[in-house]
Nucleic acid binder design. Structure first.
Lengths: 345, 345
DNA sequence: CTTTAGCACTCCCATGCTGGGAGTGCTAAT
DNA sequence: ATTAGCACTCCCAGCATGGGAGTGCTAAAG
């Protein structure tokens, strides 16, 4: 399944021309713009071969050629030259992550924006899944008027805040005692496992303060509600509209419909294999029908060795792969690094 | 500027027919569907009058009529009958706000989703502006490894979490002492006023712990960064695509472009007068060019008497005003009520 | 054996034309 | 004041047409 040098050059020319113009590429164009030193007729023969081998497609007889999924795949795996991130882009990315005071949620949001701005495609970012997050620390802070702020800090640096309400003022010392006990029992427990069962054990020890504990239990129970929003952040939704492949409103509707359903986006991105590299999935390689006309460039960010979430860029198959891959790679590294530095044990 | 009874009936018929079909309305249709007991010819005369008075428009000679902004305005102010929220919708809304443990941010997010689901138009929700929020409470919680979680609670119930990092473990008692002092000085101060100036006074008192204070100062300084994200939440972006008036990609791009710029959305909604009622702005009544083809139904939610933010529904001018107004009103009330109950002093 | 010029052929698409339909405004009769 | 009748306007869907871009094939040249 290897291609001779000239076929590679032709394929590369077709991909690059189509990426930049969105118009089917004719033999004439290839011969003229990408000096191969042969006539259009020769190119035509090569293109016919490439089509037969499945690397190119024709929208209809007598149109130019367009790369197939297989063609893009070959381009991404073999032809595309690794690209450095442009210095100004790298600068901008580093700049963003220099401010290290943000909590994880804000960081993720910024990442989505950053990705879409630097690539000019749409960005998806997933935060840590709740059921894979473990409690690091819990604290109750009385704010007056019977209101108590419950702060849950997870190993991934997420902070969840919840309110507790009581009829009368609660004693700060009592809260501290409860916090301490809860911490003792719950540290390292997954958030979605803090159901009644677990809490019942603690109940005994804290029976004196059951009225407080009851509220906390209800609240943590709520926490496990799967209908609860996932942490998916989108950036640059408008960018899709710049792509001529989405001039069709119905396709757009389908796509945006998918993206609005956070559970689906989660599943989509998590179905992609994790390895240390950036992963590209092209057209029909994608699980979901709705993005069979798109490509996805995905990176996985971590805290230490612990996988936290994904970042992805979504664009038309006709995507500037080299550039996007380099940016996704760079952003993933930066994000992982800052998280690891400040959150890893 | 008053219309006789029959003209009102005709105008109402045109608005309601156009709202439901998106097709220009002819005299025949009005006569047939909205039993007025007169012939199409009579209706034609009335419609010609209404057009002359500016309530109706003709896309072109020999098409039916379409309401003008003025026509919609009259409909909203005078013709539309106040509608009750459908029982199942009311049920759903109450349901959502019954769980009272969420922090404000989550509540706002849910509100955006709720609004778009119940109205079938797009929803915009603004959270409290930072510069109008005052510190209620501040607390530092050491989490181990030199990491300290700084939680800022505002009067509007917003909780901001920020991380502080130190070389070595910090003493919990010292943190508590600092927290106490800071609270004493900063309670009731607006978030964007916590600049160096103010902190310098405190510096003296806490000179022993300057290395901690310095970080806090930097961090709060950051807080005043106006480039920081505003709190705008969108719900149901896809819904716009269902409207035939947005079959044109360019208009769509313009609109989504506006909506992605949070500062602009803020300005747009805040330019709308606040009174206790729900406000409707139609077409050209809107400030921004980009939504001159849309209408906006806006409500203001509060904590006690203190204005916190806005909720809005964005749809085509051809909007089901009665329904949307009732939903926005109901949601506003519910949201204000729950916030007031749990956060008002 | 590879490359290339030449040419007939295919298919899309922008353009222009046409007829029917929906709706109007006017006039004259009720 | 209302309405039937009718001529008129305008849109739009459907169809035909021609030019252009691009192909595949053949035969000649390197």
């Amino acid at each position: 399944m290897t291609l001779d040098v000239r076929k590679r050059l032709v394929l590369q020319a077709v991909v690059e021309s189509y990426v930049s113009t969105a118009e089917p590429v004719g033999s004439r164009t290839v011969a003229r713009k990408y000096q191969l030193g042969v006539s259009p007729a020769t190119i035509r023969n090569e293109m016919a071969d490439l089509e037969e081998m499945g690397y190119l497609e024709q929208p209809h007889t007598s149109a130019g050629r367009v790369p197939s999924d297989k063609g893009y795949r070959f381009y991404v795996d073999r032809l595309m030259r690794n690209q450095q991130v442009a210095p100004d882009v790298a600068q901008k990315i580093r700049e963003i992550y220099k401010r290290r005071t943000k909590e994880l949620e804000a960081l993720i949001q910024i990442t989505a924006k950053l990705l879409s701005e630097t690539t000019d495609y749409m960005a998806l970012v997933l935060g840590p899944r709740r059921e894979r997050s473990f409690l690091r620390f819990l604290r109750m802070i009385p704010v007056g008027g019977g209101r108590v702020l419950l702060a849950l800090v997870t190993d991934t640096g997420f902070v969840e805040n919840r309110w507790l309400h009581f009829q009368e003022e609660v004693d700060e010392l009592e809260l501290e005692r409860i916090s301490d006990t809860l911490n003792r029992y719950l540290q390292g427990v997954a958030l979605d496992e803090m159901g009644y069962g677990l809490l019942r054990t603690i109940d005994v020890e804290l029976s004196r303060s059951r009225y407080i504990l009851t509220q906390i239990m209800e609240l943590l129970e709520d926490e496990t509600d799967p209908a609860d929003e996932e942490r998916v952040y989108l950036g640059g939704t408008v960018k899709i509209l710049n792509q001529p492949e989405f001039k069709d409103i119905d396709k757009l509707k389908e796509l945006l419909g998918l993206l609005e359903n956070e559970e689906d986006v989660y599943e989509l991105l998590n179905s992609i294999d994790v390895d240390d590299e950036v992963t590209v999935t092209i057209g029909n390689e994608n699980r979901r029908e709705e993005i069979r006309e798109c490509s996805l460039v995905t990176g996985t960010y971590r805290i230490g060795n612990h996988i936290v979430g994904k970042i992805a860029v979504l664009g038309p198959r006709r995507m500037e792969y080299a550039k996007v891959v380099s940016v996704v790679d760079y952003v993933t590294r930066n994000l992982s690094e800052i998280l690891t530095r400040y959150l890893d044990n």
